[in-house]
Simulated scan of single mutants.
Amino acid sequence: MSTIPLDYETLRLIWWALLGILLIGFSIMGGMDLGIGTLLPFVARTDEERRVLLNLSGPTWEGNQVWLVLGGGAIFAAWPAIYAASFSGFYIAMIAILLALILRPVGFKFRGKVSDPRWRRVWDWALFVGGFVPSLVFGVAVGNLFLGVPFRLDETMRASYEGNFFGLLTPFALVTGLMSLCMLTTQGATIIAARTEGTVSDRARTLGKWSAIGTLALFLLGGAIVLFFLPGYRVMSIQNAFGPSNPLGKTVELVAGGWSDNYTRMPWMIVAPSLAIVGSVLAYLGLELRTRRIGLFGSSIAIFGIISTAGLSLFPFLMPSSIAPDASFTVWDSSSSQMTLFIMLCATVVFLPIVLAYTAWVFWVMRGNVTTTSLNRNPNAY
C-alpha cells in the first residue's frame, strides 16, 4: 500500500496547474522587465529618461527572474521527458533566449561605466534585444505546441528531433509570437505609465494602447485559426492513464476541431479566453483614462487569461508530436514518479510562499514613482 497521501492522478494534475502558475507568474512579473526593455529605445529619448526606465526595472528584475528559474526547474523535475525533448529540439531557440537574457544584467552593469553616448546607446539596444527576443520566441514556442513538434521516441524512450530552427517560424507560430510580444510590451507600458511622469509616461501610454489593441487582435486571430482551421490532437485510447509514465502506451489522432474538445466537455473553460479579452480592454482603458492601477491590473488579467487559454486548450497534451502522434507527451504519461512529485510538492508548499512574500516586500520597498529628481537623490541609481 502506498504511503503517499495523494494519488498519482492528483499529483500530476497539481503539477500541471503549478507549471501554469509559474509561467503566468513569470509573464506577469518578468513581463514588466521584458516590456520595459522592448520599449526602452522608443519611450526614452534622452539619457536621463533612459536612466529612469533602467531604475524602474533594475532593482526588481533579478527577483522577477526567479519565476523563470522555478518554471524551468519544475519542467526538469516534474516533466523530465518534456525537458529533454524540448531543450534538444528547441536548442537554437533556447540559446537565442539565453543570450538575449544575458544581455540584461550585462547592460545594467556596463551601461553607466562610460559616459560616452555611443557606448550607452549600444547597451540601450542590447537591453532592447534582451526584452524583444525572449518575448517573441516564447510565443513562437507556444504556437508550435499547437502545431505539434517534430519528434519521435525509440523503444528506449529517447526522443529524436527531426526539425530545424526555421521550421518553427510558421505563420501561425509568428502570430502567437507577435501576440506574446504585444502582451508583454503592454505589461511594460502599464508599469511605465504607472510609475513615471511627464513625456516618458505619455509615450508609454501611447505605445501601450497600440500594443493592447495588438494583443487583443492577435489573440482573436489566433483563436479563430485554432477553432476553424487548425486540426488538433485527440487521445483515442490509453493503456493505463494512472500508472507509471509511458508515452508510447496510447494512440493519438489529429482531427479537425481537436483543440476545441475541452470547451465542449467543460464549458466553464470559456472563462479563460473571456479574461484575456476583458483584460486587454481594461489595459487599453486604463492607459487611455490615465488610471494607473486599472491599466496594470488589466494587462495582468490578460496575461492570466491568454496563458490559461493555451494550457486549457492543449490539455491533456503538454508537447504533441507532429510526426509520431502516439509519442506525444501528456499530463498522464510524461511525469516523474509519484514519490518525486509528492516530495517536490512538499518543498513547493514551503518555499513558494517565501518567494511570494519576498516579492511583495521588494515591490513595497521600491514603490513610488521613478523620476529624474529621485535619481539625483539616490547615489546608487544606475
Rank of each mutant, 00 (worst) to 15 (best):
I4M: 10
I14M: 06
G30R: 01
M32L: 12
M32Y: 11
D33T: 03
G35E: 02
L39T: 03
R50T: 14
L53P: 05
L56T: 04
S57N: 12
P59T: 08
Q65T: 00
L70A: 12
G71W: 13
G72W: 11
I75Q: 05
P80W: 07
P80M: 07
F90N: 05
Y91S: 06
I95W: 08
L98I: 06
P105D: 12
W119I: 12
W123H: 13
D124E: 13
W125I: 09
W125A: 09
A126I: 06
F128H: 13
F128A: 14
V137C: 06
V140Q: 14
V140E: 15
V142D: 12
L145W: 14
V149G: 05
S160Y: 14
A173P: 11
M179K: 02
M183S: 08
M183L: 15
A189K: 00
R195L: 14
R195N: 14
T196H: 05
T196K: 05
T199H: 10
V200M: 08
S201T: 00
R205E: 03
R205W: 03
A212C: 09
A212M: 08
L216F: 06
F219N: 02
L221K: 05
F229E: 09
S237L: 12
A241C: 07
R265E: 14
R265I: 07
I270L: 13
L287C: 04
L296H: 11
I303C: 10
G305V: 03
L314T: 03
I323W: 04
F329Y: 13
S335M: 13
S336L: 02
L345C: 01
L345T: 02
F351D: 01
Y358R: 00
Y358L: 10
A360I: 09
W364D: 12
V365H: 02
V370G: 08
T373L: 09
N380G: 12
Y382S: 14
